[in-house]
Amino acid sequence: MTTLYLFGSAAPPVFEVASVIEEAQGRGWDVCLGLTPSAARWLENDVPALERLTGHPVRSEYKLPGQPDVWPKADVILLAPATFNTINQWALGLTSTFVVGVVAEGIGKRIPTVTMPCVNAAYVQHPQFDTSVATLRGAGVTVLYGPGGFEPNQPGERRPEGYPWHLALDAVARRTA
């Protein structure tokens, strides 16, 4: 069975994570859910149900030295939704959060990794964002951004078709084929 580390940042699509987990499990994947600290705060009331759904603890913090790892090793990682902050921290190697630390280390471990940003058109005007996307792509990360991936919307606007989770899960399937 393929073990998927599903990581999410604090963007509105993170509220859909239970259905994404169910879809991933329907594809035969064992899912371990990790959240940025803000996303964990957003989903605080849902964590017990998400742990029952995955059969694993939901993690948002590093374990203490000497503590055993409570998850199986990852075969593939999906970080979605990935906020402006998360993408930039990752590309710059700023690993102060569990999620960013795992995906940064995943590059060096050569774990197939997919990410799909969830950023608005104002954020992507900042020059660091395109640099960060290019850095991650150059490191072997599949970044679903632009045509065929996530395309930014205007600040405060959501697309009627919603966040394209299916593109992210299909990319994970391709990376593990």
Rank of each mutant, 00 (worst) to 15 (best):
A40W: 09
R41I: 06
R41A: 15
E44Y: 15
N45P: 09
D46L: 14
D46W: 11
V47T: 09
A49K: 14
A49R: 14
A49I: 09
E51D: 13
L53I: 07
T54F: 03
T54N: 05
G55W: 12
H56A: 08
S60N: 09
E61K: 10
E61V: 13
K63L: 12
K63G: 08
L64M: 11
P65I: 12
P65Q: 13
G66L: 15
G66V: 10
G66Q: 14
Q67E: 13
P68N: 04
V70W: 10
W71A: 08
P72D: 06
P72R: 10
P72V: 08
P72K: 09
D75K: 11
D75I: 13
V76K: 00
I77D: 02
L78V: 12
A80K: 08
A80R: 03
T83M: 04
F84G: 00
N85M: 08
T86L: 02
I87T: 06
I87W: 02
Q89P: 00
Q89S: 08
A91Y: 03
T95Y: 04
F98W: 14
F98L: 15
V99R: 04
V99W: 03
V100R: 01
G101L: 01
G101I: 04
V103M: 07
V103T: 09
A104H: 14
A104K: 15
E105G: 10
E105Q: 11
I107N: 09
R110P: 03
R110Y: 10
T113H: 06
T113L: 15
C118F: 06
V119S: 00
V119T: 04
N120W: 02
N120C: 04
A121F: 05
A121H: 07
A122P: 01
A122F: 07
V124M: 05
V124H: 05
V124K: 06
Q125P: 06
P127E: 07
P127M: 03
P127T: 09
Q128K: 06
Q128P: 00
Q128V: 13
D130H: 06
T135W: 00
L136Q: 01
L136E: 01
G138I: 13
G138R: 13
G140C: 09
V141G: 02
T142M: 07
V143C: 03
V143S: 00
L144W: 12
